[in-house]
Amino acid sequence: MLGNGIRQNITGYLVVLSGLFMLADLYLIFVVAPTDAVLGHVQRVFYFHVPIAIMSFLAFFLVFLASIAYVVRRDGKWDRLAHSCAEVGVVFVTLALLTGIIWGRPLWNTWWTWEPRLTTTLILWLIYVSYLMIRSYASNQQQAARYSAVVGIVGFVDVPIVYYSVVWWRSIHPSPVVGPFAQANALEPIMLWILLFSMVTFLLLFAYLVAERTALRNSEDRLRGMRLVLRRTGR
């Protein structure tokens, strides 16, 4: 397997790089960033929530692209990429929901509100959990790849429609609980820079996790291939 060494190197760089960035990011968030005048320390969760949420969207966009590629080309490597991105994406979207709830509590004065972005994130979570479920309920690897590709395509196409339907729904049913800070106050420049840094940090973390997971799937598939060959010779 040519290129395997290179891939291992990339994974190695990524883990070191994202580790260093994460340390710097934590320092920036908890020491450098100014405490929000109104919300207090809770506001710092914002530096985690926004990048994590964006990375989960990126993950599902990659699942969508890889699923299309798999449907068209039928090459197992696209399925490996889609599967890895979906798993990492579900972890990220779960974290996005949890941090969103923590952030929403002081902001909206309630744990949960059917706000369009929050609702769409919940629907994303449901769709990609069903993506992973269909994989585990399929009777073999090829079937899992085909069925999950269908969910990966149909589910992603649905996301903008879900978003707009909830936006319009909200315009008819305004939420009775509106916190004092429903309008996000303008960010100070330093806050914006830290947010950007955090974004890069989580992008690196995301890339590392996907690379690691894809490598694991590669190994799993190679192991399957070896078992296949051994079984052919009667072992």
Binding site: S139, N140, Q141, Q142, G225, R227, L228, R231, R232
Partner: peptide, 10 residues
């Protein structure tokens, strides 16, 4: 043809 890691025909 194989199903997962189970070979059937080769």
């Amino acid at each position: 043809k194989s199903f997962g890691d189970w070979p059937v025909l080769w």
